[in-house]
Amino acid sequence: MTLYLRLKVKDLLTNLELLGWSIGFMEFWAAMWIFVFSGGRAVGEWGVYVVNINIALAYSFLSLLSISSTAIGLTYSVFYMSRAARYMVKFTRIGPARLVIEDFLGSLTAILVYAAIIFSSVIGLSYLRWRVLAFPENPLGVLADLILAGISFYWLSYMLALAVLVSGRTRALTMTGYLPLIIGFVAYSQLWIDLGDLIYVIPLCALPALLTYHGTGAIPPTGSYLAWLMGSATVRAVNLRLAAASTFAWIVVFITVSLALMRKSRGVPLEEIRL
């Protein structure tokens, strides 16, 4: 592991603001979810099944919110290091491609550590509440989904930071920087709202479906997850292939636009970082 990569991970994992919003704040909501919003007891096979689904929903949605909070920090860090990045790719041994790759790998590592903390605490808190160890039905699938989420939000952040740099509208950074969290909350709204086919179109809204599927083994609906959990509404099953395709498509869009912005942005600090 190179020193840049190590320091990138250290930077993201020791940043108090990120720790506060991506971990502290999410832990609060994890506790609220388990101890305040969730009712019932895990009695009988059906009771345990419902608790398992409830827990899968908790770690799926809260991990996504945590990742989208981290993405705000990523947008800012890409923006603020842009001048240093330009100098580094020219007059140090890191070079443009290596800088992008190491920055991506370091950020993804930190994102996954944050998501793992949220995941573990949801499992732990739910055990305290119901004495049920609700491990995912398909742990590797959940890990793959979290990696996909990390990749998506990293490149979304990168694209947004570059868009601000290229357009020269630095005052828009605050608003633009929060877009990942807004997108995270749109996905979160599916707990109550059924977005229907829009989940395949709205950026990253298909991620909860993939996480829930791998977490529970059940094919989730296109929205209204809580109603689905309670069995109080008729919902339409999600098309998992389309959900995965949508996620991959958005990742491709974010990476492509980022690369285009890198090449187009003559005269701004990040212009020289090209693959």
């Binding site: 320091l7 250290k10 020791t14 860090s77 290091m81 001048r83 240093a84 330009r86």
Partner: peptide, 13 residues
């Protein structure tokens, strides 16, 4: 090499 501070600000470290 240059001593401009802006090129050496990378991390919150």
């Amino acid at each position: 090499a240059v001593n401009l501070s802006e090129v050496y600000r990378v991390f919150y470290l």
